[in-house]
Design a protein around this nucleic acid. Structure first.
Length: 274
DNA sequence: CCAGCAGCCTGAAAGC
DNA sequence: TGCTTTCAGGCTGCTG
């Protein structure tokens, strides 16, 4: 499940391969989730950015007008740049979009579950992408601090973990890193209250969890691979996510697992307090 | 405006 | 063995 560390890993790999490339042809799955890929024909790529879990590809269209090609990987999305000779994408039933580059290479988007999406918009025009338009601060920005997070929790009636997954309080955190950060902070995911001091601790454990993901090239539990097709190794660094029924390495209690607002959640009933 | 939740997807794994 | 059920889950859009 690509969250911030996975998308950032891919962005860093793609940037040197794609900057300067010109898109000369494109194809896509029939779904409107993917057909905007076709509108990028004629565009030249000049920068790759990331906001939360969104990859933002800055391009210049045929008339020299800047545009943003936006890709969200959903759950199973994979991006790659393939040499023409490779043609690994030919006959791939899960290829949802492809862009042929002027030098013959292909930029491909493979997505088994089709939860991913592609958009082409004027720079910064995110009105049609509500989550992106309302995205909270990047987790490593100074703006994301204990006061900011505590204020968000105070004005909402939702469970803390659900707020973290909502992308408005902070961008880029998904189920894996939310469970890890809450465990590391010793905070119960179902709480609806959070002091500024405890929020400040959580801000730091969110950063720690994401940093670990980045340092280990992402977390591969099922489908995630980077743009070179390699799995991440952060799954070996997890203390909480996916460990329901196992002893907590901090206190020895058995980690519990249940659904919270529709999302599988693992936590320690003893050392994660409200 | 907000909270809650169904629906989107499909392969892998578990259950029968 | 083979069929059926469950599970994973980020985001959208509908309902109350």
């Amino acid at each position: 499940m690509p969250e911030l560390p996975e998308v950032e890993t891919i962005r860093r790999q793609l940037e040197p391969k794609l900057v300067g490339a010109e898109i000369v042809d494109a194809g896509s799955h029939w779904s409107e989730k993917f057909t905007p890929a076709l509108e990028a024909v004629g565009a030249e790529i000049f920068r790759l950015r990331r906001r939360g879990k969104y990859l933002l590809i800055d391009v210049t269209d045929l008339g020299g007008t800047p545009q943003e090609l936006i890709i969200h990987l959903g759950m199973t999305g994979q991006l790659a740049v393939e040499a023409q000779s490779g043609s690994a994408h030919l006959g791939d039933p899960y290829l949802r979009a492809w862009w042929r580059l002027a030098d013959g290479r292909y930029f491909t988007f493979h997505d088994v579950r089709r939860f991913g999406r592609i958009h082409l918009v004027a720079p910064g025009d995110h009105a049609t992408i509500p989550t992106l338009a309302a995205l909270g601060p990047e987790p490593f920005d100074d703006e994301f601090d204990g006061r900011h997070l505590a204020a968000f929790v105070k004005k909402s009636n939702r469970h803390l973990k659900t707020i973290l997954l909502g992308q408005r309080a902070v961008a880029g955190v998904g189920n894996i890193y939310a469970d890890e950060a809450l465990w590391a902070a010793g905070i119960n995911p179902a709480t609806r209250r959070l002091s500024v001091d405890r929020a400040a601790v959580l801000v730091e454990t969110i950063r720690d969890a994401l940093r670990s993901g980045l340092e280990h090239g992402g977390t591969t539990l099922r489908d995630y691979v980077d743009s070179d097709g390699h799995q991440g190794s952060n799954q070996h660094e997890l203390f909480c996510y996916g460990r329901g029924g196992e002893p907590c390495v901090r206190c020895g209690a058995v980690l519990r697992r249940r659904e919270l607002d529709g999302r599988t959640t693992t936590w320690c009933p003893t050392c994660q307090t409200r």
